[in-house]
């Protein structure tokens, strides 16, 4: 069953000013429950605007967003309710931390949702556990944490609202390689347990190809492609013409295939490539 359906969605910034710009242009798309969707696109392709329309932070100029079959703007006064269902983690979310302690900051969302103290305590601790924040850190000021810990605390603040759809706008940007690995693993662990729909905006094709079930490619406000990572990254030329690239390992394998080596198409990870190459060498009797 599709959890979110987007119909003819468009958004134009600064209508009737010299700065008028069409950010999202007539997008039609459907997402299934429990899917992990990757969203890629060049800077200024309308990704951020698009995801902000999913939880009603931006009101579309035209078109509709249907959440479980209902238009989210049906009752504009109740748009806040949508925000608890579609959680949104912005780029560099650590800059939105404000409360005295990490615990209080994470509880901001659940408190706005109107939960009682017991429920708040439960969800806060659960969310902190998902992102690997210890109890000791919960009582610290968010401004005393390290960069990676701040990021995880901010993400916990959104997870604590227990949303059915979780949108993450470049959650790993600016983290060191190990921090990225850990955060990705935590998000996937959370997804496995909660089984909700996850929206993952990223510039890292490696991350996208590893975790996404389906990938949306946006270019100049339009939805250009929507398919499995394997099918998307098989079209190297089209992807590169939009200012994007395919995972490095995919590119290497594609180039090897072009030179006549008998490898399968659509290799996305280093592990896959490794076993492919080992198989080829075995077939040729080298090892």
């Amino acid at each position: 069953m599709s959890i979110i359906e987007v119909k003819d969605l468009s958004f134009t910034y600064g209508i009737n000013t010299p700065f008028e710009k069409k950010a999202v242009d007539d997008v039609n798309v459907c997402f299934n429950e429990g899917e992990v969707i990757g969203l890629i696109g060049h800077t200024g392709s309308g990704k951020s605007t698009f995801v902000q329309m999913l939880n009603g932070l931006i009101k579309p100029t035209s078109g509709q967003v249907l959440l479980e079959g209902k238009d989210i703007w049906e009752k504009p006064k109740e748009i806040r309710k949508i925000r608890f269902k579609v959680g949104m983690v912005f780029q560099y979310p650590e800059y939105q931390l404000f409360d005295e302690t990490v615990y209080k900051d994470i509880s901001f969302g659940p408190r706005n949702k109107g939960l009682n103290e017991n429920e708040i305590d439960l969800t806060v601790r659960k969310a902190a556990k998902f992102v690997g924040l210890s109890d000791k850190l919960l009582n610290k000021s968010p401004f005393d944490l390290s960069g990676g810990e701040k990021r995880r605390a901010a993400i916990a603040g959104v997870i604590a609202m227990d949303p059915d759809v979780l949108v993450l706008d470049e959650p790993t940007a600016g983290l060191d390689p190990k921090g990225r690995e850990v955060l990705l693993a935590q998000i996937m662990g959370y997804h496995k347990e909660r089984k909700n729909t996850i929206f993952f905006v990223s510039h890292s094709m490696e991350d996208i190809s590893r975790i996404a079930d389906r990938v949306m490619v946006m270019n100049k406000g339009r939805l250009e492609m929507f398919d499995t990572p394997k099918n998307i990254f098989a079209q190297v030329e089209k992807i590169e013409s939009m200012g994007l690239r395919v995972p490095q390992i995919t590119k290497i394998i594609t180039m090897l295939r072009e030179r006549g080596y008998d490898l399968t198409d659509g290799v996305l990870t280093v592990e896959q490539a490794f076993s492919e190459v080992v198989n080829l060498l075995k077939r040729e009797g080298v090892i």
Binding site: Q52, L57, R83, F84, G109, N112
Partner: peptide
């Protein structure tokens, strides 16, 4: 604008 959106996304009224 950005911070307001982020807090609104967390249900700030």
């Amino acid at each position: 604008d950005k911070i307001m959106s982020a807090q609104k996304a967390r249900g700030a009224d």
